[in-house]
Design a protein around this nucleic acid. Sequence first.
DNA 1: GCTTCTATGCAAATCGTTTTGCCTAATGGG
DNA 2: CCCATTAGGCAAAACGATTTGCATAGAAGC
Lengths: 338, 338
Amino acid sequence: MNEGILGKPTISDLAKAAGVSVTTVSHAFSGRRHVDPETRKRIQTLADQIGYHPSSMARALRSGRTGTIALASSMPFAVAAGPSRLGFLMEIAASAAMSALTRDLALCLIPPHPSAQSYGSAGFDGVILVEPMRDDPLVAHFEQRKTPIVSIGTVPGRPDIPAVDIRSRETAQLLLTHLAEQGCRQIAALIGSTSRTSQIESEAAYDEFVASHQWLSPMIRLNEDEGEEIAYRETLRLLHANPAIDGIFAAIDAFASGAVRAARELGRTVPGQLRIVTRYDGLRAKLSQPPLTAVDLYLPTIAEEAVHLLLDRIDGNSRMVTAELPKLIVRQSSEATG
Amino acid sequence: MNEGILGKPTISDLAKAAGVSVTTVSHAFSGRRHVDPETRKRIQTLADQIGYHPSSMARALRSGRTGTIALASSMPFAVAAGPSRLGFLMEIAASAAMSALTRDLALCLIPPHPSAQSYGSAGFDGVILVEPMRDDPLVAHFEQRKTPIVSIGTVPGRPDIPAVDIRSRETAQLLLTHLAEQGCRQIAALIGSTSRTSQIESEAAYDEFVASHQWLSPMIRLNEDEGEEIAYRETLRLLHANPAIDGIFAAIDAFASGAVRAARELGRTVPGQLRIVTRYDGLRAKLSQPPLTAVDLYLPTIAEEAVHLLLDRIDGNSRMVTAELPKLIVRQSSEATG
DNA sequence: GCTTCTATGCAAATCGTTTTGCCTAATGGG
DNA sequence: CCCATTAGGCAAAACGATTTGCATAGAAGC
């Protein structure tokens, strides 16, 4: 109709300009059928000239694919949006965005609360859930909408949902064994109270570990939302009640920060009198004083695998993936020589 | 056609079930025209029952709105994806996602390189650029596609593009003045070499400041991609060449980290012999030893304003916004008493 | 009784692609 | 020389909503 003056040019504008049918233009771009190379070139040139870009919405409607996947976490986005736990999620987000892009997908960040009955008006081809909890409302939400789901970290109680197993059990074992090797004989654990697989498995690994060593097991479950603060308070109490503790396994990096603060306040040297390790090797671990021993989970790889998994899922095949075994990164906080 | 068995129910399935026309169903939901309250209720109930959710793609096609906005930064996503500068961008992303959601929009993260000729196949109603550079390719990219743009931090050389002015000049003045008040007489500056407004204005403010004090002006422009590492090396060199330096203004937090490391290596006490301040109050500043004086830019507010601005822009009205004046956060790294 | 509203609802056009089925001309094998 | 095949292209039917222009019916005004 209106050529170019207003509005973006459509495929039929381009077809008209090139003197061919819209069908031919479509085929020229998609390559689903053969079109004369010369015609194709003419179309391409003309397309650039008039600034034609196919409408993603029309394409989406027709093909049933939006070309957009979502990344969601029920970790309290807002609460954690202070620069606390954000790191983990955002590092995944960044990597996932990259992976998605290379596959010509866009990555949408969606906050945890499915309160807004629809997430924007946007439709997603699929969604990646980060460390969902047992009975996570997000799972229900997307299942009801028949949106394909994959998860980073298995979904507790839902072995049917494809997931990248991030080896939380092995991660915990790695850290606990390391502490023992460094000479710790009385290791406490600070573990999140949510029912995420990482916390569940951390706890299981810890229980198993202390059982096999016939130790006491001062384990505390902490509300993740309260982060560093609660870990600080509880560590103070813990060390006070149980001065023999010489190692702390913090399942969340914010907890480790709190523990370090508490140790300092009580005049315990780290790692001299108290060794502290944590799972996620984020900024916190690296910048802490002393720097914290942690594990490299290979997050970019995990994110990449999740995207891959989701794509497969969208195409109808479900499968599970087990991530590479995490690698211990030993730093000052747990070194044997103080 | 196929009722319920496979595929998601469409509006016409619902209409059929309710014994009305699709028009009526549409109106019942949108409220664009009056429909009998009883009919509406019946439709609603039935909708829940058969699990009807309007197709976002169809809606998008018809209405021209995808309900999705994008957040893009030409800061090297991948390079910075190590947990370095990610903080700034991601803190904005998190806040923007929240703001977007409350307006029923989804927020897409898109990596910097417009190399993939299309960003996924996704269409955005608009895009928020974070601290774009002069002649940023992203600007060209979206302008060509007639996608509304707003920017966080003005776009150098493009006063016509709506932006949230993040007051980089005032931020720099605040920090420099503070250093002077703490007794510094020879302040060096570490500034990013990209042409982002924040760096440009930091430099201008610094030049002005040293000129008015008739001081020397050891300013170094550093490649932001090299982050902490290059700042470390250059600070070493700087302090060696110019031992009288007693203050460092780092325009990027990673630079500050590098400077701290360099100072420690040279045995300069911070803040005793050398005071260090930086702009962005992220994890780095907070967890650094000693903690760094920085400014609170009120990022969540800025993100919120950017989303608001973009919405206005999409509706056709352009305007500029000036963010609240940042607030100095004094920490140990610049205290007068070492 | 006749016009004029108002309330309610429907049919059909539209958004911009992709995809299917069909058509024509040219090519090649026999 | 005829038939089968292929290359190149077109028209039209989806995709699933929104929106516009009628239609019908009862109510109200005169």
